[in-house]
């Protein structure tokens, strides 16, 4: 899985391309941990290029959400594809990680 990080005015925009599984999940944790350590506590994970997520990937998202909140901010997800939405709904985690249509919409009302 490939990640890119772009610092936007109101949040760090992280895109993940590929499969968020046992291989991709630890990489996501590293990327978000670094972003938060560097001072960005408002994070959007743009999953438009994430074709697959399993429970290990979901666990990494939950861990990253905790990191951002412990730093006084928040982590939100955007642009999810049908497979990721299926995982969120089957696990009821869409209540906690409510997907936004676009990255810009994620912190638009804050």
């Amino acid at each position: 899985m490939q990640f890119t990080v772009e610092q936007k005015p109101r949040y760090a925009h992280i895109t993940g391309t590929g499969r968020l599984n046992m291989v991709g999940a630890p990489r996501l944790r590293e990327v978000v941990s670094k972003v938060v350590d560097e001072g960005s506590n408002h994070v959007v994970i743009d999953l438009g290029g994430t074709e697959f997520m399993d429970s290990s990937g979901l666990g990494a998202l939950i861990g990253c959400l905790k990191l951002a909140r412990q730093a006084g901010g928040d982590l939100r997800i955007a642009n999810v594809r049908p497979q990721v939405r299926m995982v969120l709904e089957l696990t009821s985690m869409h209540r906690v990680l409510n997907p936004y249509d676009t990255a810009d919409a994620a912190f638009a009302d804050d």
């Binding site: 666990g59 939950i62 696990t91 209540r95």
Partner: peptide, 9 residues
Amino acid sequence: QEHHESGRG
């Protein structure tokens, strides 16, 4: 539960 990072598989 929702705050757990594992236990869903």
